[in-house]
Amino acid sequence: MNILICGVGGQGTILASKILAESAVIDGSDVARTGETIGMSQRGGSVVSHVRTEKTSSPYIPKGSADILIAFEKCEAARCLPFLKPGGKAVVSLSEIKPVAVSLGVMAYDSKAMESFIKTYAESIFIDTEKLAAPFMDGKCTNTLLLGAAFGKGFINITEDSVKKAMEKLIKPRFLDVNIKAFEAGIEAVKDRGNV
């Protein structure tokens, strides 16, 4: 599977990507690869993590070939949509983080147009992460919650048990429980919800 995770630097995309790669290996993949954005962009810039759970040589997903897009922010979802393959799925946070240039009035953030663009090209589900993730360390578990939503929809062919094992391995013990709860809340949130 090719999974693309995108968001804004500081949102925790890298942990989500590590969890997916780790759980894929626990689930029996020979090799999982990720490609991360680490560096200057982590300071509030656009960040993307590529996750590949089947044998490839390169960790980077070509445009038009991601099976699923997990977006932590709406504008970043729209920016990364060209990575999705035809019929690809998208799990998108409704969160809007406006770049400073937008607040300064130099650029526009057309939320409605972004949403309709995403809906036109992807089988997508939008998640109100601000509301749903609030109970889990003031929104700091948005990453594990969104992973939960993707699993809840059955978009990712890795077992839930492997994901939890991966979380045990990668998350500090004192934050593990709250992250597992956020993951489960993500699964719960998409139950009985059709795709948009």
Binding site: V8, G9, M40, S41, Q42, R43, G44, G45, S46, G64, C75, E76, A78, R79, L81, P82, L84, K98, P99, V100, A101, V102, M107, A108, Y109, D110, A113, M114, F117, T120, Y121
Partner: peptide
């Protein structure tokens, strides 16, 4: 897929 919407760039801050 070509975006039908102009997206604001997001430089690091």
């Amino acid at each position: 897929i070509n975006p039908t919407v102009t997206l604001p760039t997001r430089a690091p801050v």
